[in-house]
Amino acid sequence: MPHESATVLQAANVGMTFNPDTPEAVTAIADISFEVGRGEVVAIVGPSGCGKTTLFNIIAGLLKPTRGDIAVDGVPVHDATGHVGYMLQKDLLLPWRTVRDNVTIGLEVRGTPSREAAGIAQALIEAYGLKGFEDAYPSALSGGMRQRVAFMRTLAFSPEVILLDEPFSALDSQTRLILQSDVMRIIRERQCSVVLVTHDVGEAITMADRIVVITSRPGRVKSVHRVDIAPELRHPLKIRTLPRFNQLFETIWSELGIELAA
């Protein structure tokens, strides 16, 4: 099981205060610690304004925390170096690049020879259902297909950790379910270590091995839940009929609800 393997990502007492030592000082994150094991999927759930975006940027290396550390494979993260791949609600496909060239961008940044990069991209495109669209431009694709390309771009350069920030929330509900189960299947197949940031409790339970609930600003870890549901039962629709799903859903929802009321 994933939780028995080594830690890939470790967040230790991470805190973030903007404009410190000024009257406008805002503490977005008070103290957050969690870890992600190899091949594990950890969901971060919190009410809006809990510093999810800030935490996301810190993990991606785009923002330096004012307290604490992020370590990937035991090495502290000081800068953005491509150790983390991320996928947002916005697909961020470059409109002037074809599907193939969008998928290879991470490899291109790393200086992978273009032949090799194209081969990696081709394999992903064929494996995950976009064969025939290699030379299409993003404007010719549907929202679901674009997100699929964005996911392939993240997979292509094999980051240590994949960061998903509300990746499906801009999609219609049907496409969303399809993409959710596809992404989940791929993550399991490739044994990816994933941090999923979301406000959708159902999505968190469906996809994650563990769920970290964060309080509203300033963000703190309120509770951690292990989702002990077997992978074969984790179909986005079927899972909703399980008693364990509903129990977790209600617990987490009430934890968030209290926060909302407070």
Binding site: A60, G61, L62, A80, T81, G82, H83, V84, G85, Y86, L88, K90, L92, L94, W96, I105, G106, E108, V109, R110, F157
Partner: peptide
């Protein structure tokens, strides 16, 4: 700016960001 941030997160240098995003954009 989200394109720029994405490339930064990928570890791109400033000149790579310039060449791959700023110029074509």
């Amino acid at each position: 700016n989200d394109y720029v941030r994405m490339l930064k997160a990928l570890g791109a240098t400033r000149f790579q960001i310039f060449r791959m995003v700023i110029v074509p954009g």
